[in-house]
Nucleic acid binder design. Structure first.
Lengths: 250, 250
DNA sequence: ACTAACTCTTTACGGCGTAAGGAGAATGCT
DNA sequence: AGCATTCTCCTTACGCCGTAAAGAGTTAGT
């Protein structure tokens, strides 16, 4: 995967220098392909995203997509940067904590709309236009608080990691539910009795105690689709706040 | 995917009731298949794990694996529970904070040894023997600190989410590096100049400032293979500690 | 009018998970 | 002992996948 080609595609700079094309006009655009691919992935998941499935609703053959995009991997890159454009602006935020809160919630919202996103958010930045803007926004929000650059990066990394983990857990739950046709609660209803047979109370006392408290069945208790995202987020922000305070004091 | 069948397989209870088998003896065991599959996944990644690739080193055809395991999905479940057995015991830990620290580091260590694990750690628990023991351990460590059950669950969820996110970021970096043949540093050397062309300093001031500080090139600065895992972990634990203190005070 | 450049097509290859059905081996019953 | 049953493991086959190769058809420059 050629980095130069990938970057050019992300910034849509590919066909800028060459205006007069010899052959027939292109009937599609990269944007249209990317948007179609996003719709397919939203509906069926990233695993079910195939070149053939993207080409069909566009009325072309799979191979014609290769005129616009070098391959599947690069298409996915473009999809990712496109949906990162849905992140909210942090400019109006009141203080760094609120900005980080919005950053994390924005990431979570994207993940909920597009469950295929979390596994793709890699540490190796692709730096398309939207990812660039997002980085600039969050680093801007962190600029005044007195952390060294190294720790600013680590803080963003921490937030991204947390959101990614939480989002993926929620996405998996939804995916499993859709595939098995069972909701989270129904699944526990089915396996609950089975578990109680295999898991003995005296071998696993702490787990049994929590299990019997019934908290596993409560929605939003820390597991399941909405898995205590806000609770965790506030703990993470508290941890960052303490670091900021310690820096200021010491 | 039948939950009962899956659970029976995880606890290896499948052939317990039926002792006298009519046909020829089985030449393989579920354990041997699972261990071989883990080796394949460790070497080539989960995407490259195919029934044919697992069968080959065992000297059987792909289809004979279906005598032992209902399908690929269930095999992966077994692989996951198997490697969760590598998690360290938390019994000797001195206090809940140290226990959680070990829990998180243990998870991270597993993820590093088996980079295919993080995407699989789902909120829908499979509850094989090792996952069960792990849950019991961490809930035991949290039992005395005064948090309600709901928040104990949320705390474990928070840690799992953080570890999962961080581990996946690290695994992706490694995977990308292996596939492209470029180390993290080499990749930045290649794309750096390109990025400076497309990303203008006045449109992205905060990002440019951090970029020019050179901190992106430092190893372990918050990105890259070792991406500030410890920094983030301490922030997360600080956040949990504050919650515990608030609970105790209020 | 001719040619070069370009888009889009059809075909093909080697991979995948696994359904179907058949060959051969070990047991239980008579 | 001999037969039926039951089980393991095999080969074959189907419909998916990404994309390489090569050809058909369209447009622009000369």
């Amino acid at each position: 995967m050629d980095p130069a080609r990938t970057l050019a595609l992300l910034w849509r700079a590919e066909h800028e220098p060459v205006r007069p094309a010899r052959g027939p006009r292109q009937g599609l655009t990269v944007d249209r392909i990317v948007r179609t691919a996003i719709a397919v992935a939203d509906a069926d998941g990233l695993a079910a995203l195939s070149m053939r499935k993207v080409a069909e609703p566009l009325g072309v053959s799979a191979m014609s997509l290769y005129t616009y995009v070098p391959g599947r991997a690069e298409l996915v890159n473009c999809m990712l940067d496109e949906v990162l454009g849905e992140a909210p602006s942090l400019e109006a935020a009141d203080g760094w904590r609120q900005a980080l809160e919005r950053y994390a919630r924005g990431g979570m919202a994207i993940a909920r709309r597009h469950p295929w996103v979390p596994p793709l958010v890699s540490s190796r930045m692709l730096m398309g236009p939207n990812e660039t803007a997002r980085w600039d926004g969050v680093l801007g929000a962190l600029s005044g608080v007195g952390l060294p650059e190294r720790e600013m990066l680590a803080v963003v990394h921490l937030l991204d990691g947390y959101v990614r983990g939480a989002a993926q857990q929620s996405a998996d739950a939804e995916h499993d539910a859709r595939r098995s046709g069972l909701s989270y609660d129904e699944w526990y209803e089915q396996t609950g009795p089975l578990l109680e047979k295999t898991i003995s109370a005296d071998r696993y006392p702490a787990l049994t105690r929590v299990w019997r408290s019934g908290v596993f069945e409560e929605p939003g208790a820390g597991l399941g689709p909405d898995g205590g995202f806000e609770f965790g987020l506030q703990r993470v922000l508290d941890g960052i706040e303490r670091r900021v305070a310690d820096r200021f004091a010491g």
